[in-house]
Computed example of a mutant assay.
Amino acid sequence: MRAVFLERESLDRGDLDLSGAEAAVDEIVYHNHTSADQVLERITGFEIVIANKVRVSRQDLEQARPKMIAVVATGVNNIDLDACQELGITVVNVRGYGTDSVAQHAIGLLLALATRLIDYHRDVQQGEWNRSAHFCLLDYPIVELAGKKLGVVGLGTLGGRTAELARALGMEVLSAQRPGGKPQPDRVPLDELLPQVDALTLHCPLTDDTRGLIGRRELAMMKPTAFIINTARGGLVDEEALVEALRQRRLGGAGFDVLTEEPPRSGNPLLDDDIPNLIVTPHSAWGSHEARQRICEQLAENIRGWRNGEPVRVVV
């Protein structure tokens, strides 16, 4: 039983233990990166395909006919699932591996915005503290999060863990009604939640109901001092509208780990260097060593389960 890993570097930079997956098959062939036009050539002759974000099309599947696709991510929109179902190809994914890593990152972004960490660090590097007439610099407003309200959109595993960390900081947590979902007594409709919160954190998937969830209208409802955090998916927030709100000081700050296009080869309005109190990180919230090692362990479990006739984490 042979396996091919199409995008090893998207998961492992030489710091992970993949021995479990290697022991579950007779051979693994590794490729650090695979482009869409290389997929067919590289998966032909292999029973198991290990992929992350590269697109695996119906044409690739019909010609190569692998038996299993192991996705080392939760999202599987890059795999033609209809074709897999028709061809009898099992698709599995990994789940729940990055809860602490993502929640930590979301709170880290919020803390950095509230303390103006980036701005003060930059001023120190540029010698502003050396030239100060006083023992300290207080050029940017610092906000205590204790006693403030955090709105959570998507109170699942990730949103729930983020809410737990926020409560430890003394914040009050409000949960938004799930877009497109049935009303729930412990959830607040988004239009009612936005004017109340001092910070908003997004943890929902990108769907037809959530695309453009936070646009000009919604941003205008928020306090001019409020922060918005997005470690979920690009496309949940209108990026042009967000930049406009930040530049016009109609929002306190924003911390984003995701963009509409990743990597942003065509540019992105959030990448301009003159936007006040904006922090953008490169979709790295999930990427702690511990979280990535859990992916390796789940990958091994997925392969072993499938080979033993007891597949786990099955998508198709």
Rank of each mutant, 00 (worst) to 15 (best):
A36T: 11
L251F: 00
I275W: 10
Q63A: 12
E144S: 12
L40S: 08
A36K: 12
D257P: 00
F46K: 04
E144T: 15
Y140P: 15
I28Y: 05
G253N: 07
G170R: 01
L259V: 02
E192M: 06
R2I: 01
K53Y: 06
N302G: 13
A51W: 03
L194S: 07
V39N: 04
L251S: 09
G75C: 02
E240K: 09
A3R: 10
L219N: 12
N130R: 07
G96M: 07
D139N: 12
G215K: 08
G154R: 06
L190Y: 11
K223H: 11
P276I: 01
V56T: 07
G127S: 06
K182P: 08
P269S: 03
D209C: 05
N52K: 02
T281G: 10
A23P: 10
R211D: 02
R216M: 06
R249P: 15
Q298N: 10
D26M: 02
L202P: 13
A106V: 10
R307E: 11
H31W: 12
V153R: 03
S266W: 01
G170F: 06
G267T: 03
L193W: 08
L113V: 14
A226G: 10
L270M: 14
G181N: 08
Q298I: 10
E86T: 14
P185I: 04
G127Y: 06
R307G: 07
V124Y: 00
G156W: 13
D123F: 05
A112R: 14
H289T: 15
D274Y: 07
N78I: 01
S266R: 12
R58C: 04
R265S: 14
G287C: 12
D186I: 04
L40A: 04
P183G: 10
V237G: 09
D208N: 09
H134T: 14
D274W: 05
M222G: 03
I107D: 09
H105Y: 13
V243A: 00
V153L: 05
E7F: 04
P195I: 14
F256L: 13
E41L: 03
T231N: 13
G151P: 15
V102R: 01
D198N: 04
V243F: 01
H31Y: 15
L299A: 08
P264V: 00
L213E: 04
N78R: 00
N78S: 03
A168P: 01
Y140G: 13
E128V: 15
D208W: 03
Q63M: 09
L109V: 13
R122A: 10
C296E: 07
V29M: 02
K53N: 08
V49Q: 06
D186G: 05
A241F: 05
K148I: 00
R187D: 07
D80G: 05
A146D: 13
A163G: 14
R313W: 14
E261K: 08
V49Y: 08
E164D: 12
A73W: 12
T201W: 08
V54P: 11
P269R: 02
D186Q: 08
F135W: 15
A199P: 14
V153M: 09
G147V: 06
E164V: 01
E62P: 05
I89C: 11
P189Q: 13
R313P: 15
R58S: 06
P66T: 02
V102I: 15
R178M: 13
D80W: 05
G108E: 10
M222Q: 11
D60E: 03
L145Q: 09
E240A: 08
G253L: 03
